[in-house]
Simulated assay, not measured.
Amino acid sequence: MRKIIILAFASALIASCNSKNSKDENNAVLTDTIANNEKYEPADTISVYEGTLPCADCEGIETILKIDVADNTFQLSSTYKGKQPEKNFKEKGNINTERGLEKDPDGTIYILNWDKPEKDQVYYGYYSNNPEKLYLLDRNKKIIKSNLNYFLELNE
């Protein structure tokens, strides 16, 4: 729905260069598009994913990952549950995006800390048909095959 609104707005903007009459007509189309949707909102640029990742020596790593695609930044919060005292780590940095996750050419891979040495980079990705499930990836940018849950879910 948001894509339709953005496309309608972009079309109106491009067509407005043609003439004043075209501008008036396109504004009417944009107004109609917005009026037919319950609520007009600009495209969200921040996605928040949450979940508990497996941990070798604790009950699990409670993880919150905020990705801002407009600024190409991330915030990662990890809390090691069952540790005394609980250990909490927060990290901020830059991300880069790649297309293609395994056999899905339209999948997306986020490279956290892409501007740092490879040993400091972390990879997450999602399939194009299920962007609500963000998988932690291995060093080869592949989904970790396990019976354990190596994924976060989109918090809406």
Rank of each mutant, 00 (worst) to 15 (best):
E91F: 04
L137T: 00
E62P: 03
N129Y: 13
C58Y: 02
E62A: 11
G100H: 02
W114N: 15
R139M: 09
V69A: 06
P105Q: 09
E98M: 08
K133E: 09
L112R: 03
I64L: 13
Y135V: 00
Q121R: 13
I67Y: 02
K116A: 10
S78I: 04
L134K: 00
C58K: 02
D104G: 06
Y126D: 01
I46M: 09
V69Q: 09
D71E: 15
E41I: 11
D106G: 07
T45E: 13
I67M: 04
L101Y: 02
T73N: 11
K87I: 11
W114V: 09
K87E: 13
Y110K: 01
P54Y: 05
K103V: 10
D44P: 10
Q75R: 15
K39V: 10
C58M: 06
P105A: 08
K39Q: 11
N96A: 15
T97D: 07
R139D: 08
F89T: 05
N72C: 12
L112W: 04
G51V: 00
T63S: 05
Q84T: 15
E102V: 04
I109K: 04
T97F: 11
P85Q: 10
G125R: 00
C55N: 05
Y40I: 08
G93M: 03
P42Q: 14
A56Q: 14
G93W: 03
Y40H: 10
V69M: 07
F89C: 01
G100P: 02
P85I: 06
N94A: 12
E118D: 15
G60V: 04
L76K: 05
I95A: 02
V122F: 12
N94C: 10
N88A: 11
D120S: 12
E132G: 10
N72A: 09
T73V: 12
D138C: 07
T45P: 05
Y135D: 01
A70R: 14
E118H: 14
D71P: 06
D120N: 13
R99G: 12
F74A: 02
D120K: 13
T73M: 09
G125E: 00
Y110G: 00
T79F: 02
R139C: 03
G60K: 05
D138N: 15
Y127D: 04
L53N: 01
S78W: 01
K116E: 13
Y127W: 10
P54V: 03
D115A: 08
E86K: 07
I61G: 00
I109M: 05
G60S: 07
D71M: 15
S128D: 08
K87T: 09
